[in-house]
């Protein structure tokens, strides 16, 4: 049984401009000890995916599909029970550590409060926090009396990361966990994320840092305009993407020639009933404009949302 599994998960936001379709038909499973890296351009729906898994969505949301945590369906769970799932069984390292820390609370109190929610005693919590902070080159002592704004961006990120690692959640979701860090810190963080996976948790890492993605290994999900368009072994993906968007994306990297993808991605309020990438796709052919392509299995394992693989 996978630690977490999403089936046909879709998220829309009702807004004045219409429904923003932020996540469409996402299906994947992460086993214990496995890592899933999620990449995609800004605004493609990565954070929404993370929040949807934890049901941290605002009131104007419409949610479809299923999420199972260790076989337990989450979307039908009453809010009270969901609250007990968060933190204890699923931990989130949110995007933007700076704004995730309450500005009027001292960091120490904040960390302890959240650690204790997971059932740790005062002393235990302190020790655990100090432990994970030390792995990241900080100590509890060092940050406890400070307010968030008195920490650097990298320190804030490490505090947030350390909080998520306390206790033994079965699923850890990290949204841009290396934001604002210099290369050495990125290394330590990658190391620490690897530890989490090795301890047996399912790890979902959202990142813009393709090098980090490569390094984390596991599998990679590529998102384009709310759709997961390719889901494959990370190493395989980076050596040879199968979806035209993945190819274009890697081709746009400086070391691969830096050819920008022509055109712009569609408005999420007006997604076509067809392949969302078709208008920009060099390999576009008839079926692309007729229906949204499903995920087609790839010969070497993994899936791609492209009629080329039908």
């Amino acid at each position: 049984m996978p630690a977490i599994e999403a089936r046909a998960l879709s998220v829309g936001f009702r807004t004045e401009r219409g429904v923003v379709q932020a996540l469409s038909d996402a299906s994947f499973a992460i086993e214990r000890g496995e890592t899933l890296v999620v990449i995609g351009e800004s605004g493609s729906g990565k954070t929404v995916l993370a929040h949807a898994l934890m049901r941290l969505l605002p009131r104007n949301v419409t949610l479809a599909g299923e999420v199972d945590l260790e076989g337990q369906p989450l979307l039908a769970l009453p809010e009270d029970e969901m609250r007990r799932v968060r933190g204890r069984r699923m931990a989130l390292i949110p995007q933007g550590a700076g704004s995730a820390l309450n500005p009027v609370r001292r960091v120490g109190g904040l960390m302890l409060e959240m650690a204790r929610v997971r059932g740790l005693g005062q002393g235990e919590a302190r020790e655990a926090l100090d432990g994970s902070l030390r792995e990241l080159g900080l100590s509890f002592q060092q940050v406890a009396e400070r307010y968030p704004h008195q920490l650097s961006g990298g320190m804030q990120q490490r505090v947030v990361n350390a909080m998520a690692m306390v206790g033994e959640p079965s699923v850890v979701i990290a949204d841009e966990p290396t934001h604002g860090m210099d290369p050495e810190l990125v290394d330590t963080t990658a190391e620490q994320l690897g530890m989490i996976a090795r301890r047996g948790a399912a790890l979902l890492v959202i990142t813009h840092d393709l090098r980090l993605a490569e390094r984390l290994g596991g599998r990679t999900a590529l998102i384009y305009s709310s759709y997961i368009v390719e889901l494959r072994d990370t190493a395989a993906f980076f050596s040879q993407p199968e979806h035209p968007y993945g190819r274009a994306l890697l081709g746009a990297l400086p070391e691969h020639g830096g050819v920008a993808i022509p055109g712009v991605s569609p408005e999420l309020t007006q997604l076509p009933r067809a392949c969302a990438f078709a208008p920009r796709c060099p390999a576009r052919f008839e079926p692309c404009d007729e229906a949204v392509p499903p995920m087609f299995p790839l010969p070497g394992g993994g899936e791609a949302r492209c009629y080329l693989h039908a």
Partner: peptide, 8 residues
């Protein structure tokens, strides 16, 4: 450690 909730 003293529980602190700032000034509230």
């Amino acid at each position: 450690m003293v529980r602190r909730f700032g000034w509230s």
